[in-house]
Design a protein around this nucleic acid. Sequence first.
RNA 1: CGGGGUAUAGCGCAGCCUGGUAGCGCGGAAGUUUUGGGUACUUCAGGUCGCAGGUUCGAAUCCUGCUGCCCCGACCA
Length: 446
Amino acid sequence: MRLSRYFLPILRETPKEAEIVSHRLMLRAGMIRQESAGIYAWLPLGLRVLNKINAIIREEQTRAGAIECLMPTIQPADLWRESGRYDAYGKEMLRIADRHDREMLYGPTNEEMITEIFRASVRSYKDLPLNLFHIQWKFRDEVRPRFGVMRSREFLMKDAYSFDLTAEAGRHSYNKMFVAYLRTFARMGLTAIPMAAESGPIGGNSHEFIILASTGESEVFCHKDFLSFAPPPASVDFDDAAGLQGIVDKWTSRYAATSEMHDATAFATVPEEARVAARGIEVGHIFYFGTKYSEPMKAVVNGPDGKEVVVQMGSYGIGPSRLVAAIIEASHDDNGVIWPESVAPFHVGVADLKVGDQATGKVCAALIEQLENAGLDVLHEDRDERPGAKFATLDLIGLPWQVLVGPKGLAEGRVEVKQRRTGERELLAPDDAVTRIVAAIRPGRA
RNA sequence: CGGGGUAUAGCGCAGCCUGGUAGCGCGGAAGUUUUGGGUACUUCAGGUCGCAGGUUCGAAUCCUGCUGCCCCGACCA
């Protein structure tokens, strides 16, 4: 992608409303634009990151046996009357009327709808277990939206819903998502800690997945062992119920709680040097709520004995749009964002330091071709700007690797390879620069 | 939902008190500069002064009402 032909509206000055670093950087890097309180347009660079996050979520959900579908944003009110939540949900639900004055709503979540879909088609225990997920925009009319996409009214959510015949099978489904979440966040470079949580209006047992960040909205307390636990490997067998339970047991074996669930007495039994009291950002929340919806909405299957059984359910949410901000909170410096390679909008920025110069232009073209052939996303910084402006732009948008191609280095047959995270620079021949970067990002392909 | 603030060019702001028809920096365009960490200079373009009423010969400025946005608190699958 040529930057001169791209749409990247960078701001040199910080808009005054942006209070936290992720909001400031997302605005400055041209990732989002606010259209109304808590409602944002995703500009090309921001959308690339959002899509990469979604791709990781999809892979891990699929690995854990969940199946993707897509439900609508607009739902009929009657569905919510069945569960009793139409009145219970309150003002956070955006209620609308269509031209026939039918009561509709913009979905804040989808338990009712998925239950309706399930009961319409599933009749037998043989079709269980079943876990359906989708990634869809939600709207919750927050009293006070703030912090950019961290706490917005319209936001993207991955929500999965599991259906099982027995509570034991339901526990297994819950554990699948628990383990999938550990892997999902780890792949984005985040250390997410599962914490026992209050379940709120959805009801039942639940865990919140929290990443530690000074700008987090919740106060959290945990054992510092969590910071060094290795995430489950890709080879984990999701059908091995005992194995999964072992992983979940390990990740719930130490003290971890948000302020609502905090038990100071229990926390005091943690050795003082292992106590972590910090602020955190909720990036995922999983619930096991049994028959809370299946009972009133009559989601039943025939069991092996021919009798009707009300199914056991759970729901599992991740906020991809919030994750974009959360990753920035966890990974940035004074110059801008530092993207983990797995979610970076582009892996590499190739900067032509003297646009119009034949030699630099030729080397840039060759570098880009080789990097793209190796499967990397490359941004060509080909704007007619001073080198300083290019360096500042690339640092701001946080691409993990920069290749700087200028006449001075080229006179020696060298280009400069800079790693955004460490600031480490190496002067290499162009071919070696490609090898170096490809080896770092795609170890198997160098 | 309570409290506070604010609204003037894409962004950051001045002008308002003391009414006379809008300005600065950045950004944008054209040009000079040919540059290795947001360069300097010249010229230019860009504004229903949030909206609606009122006072006045005259309103960005004074008065009234409304709305948007921001901050603090409460709230928050």
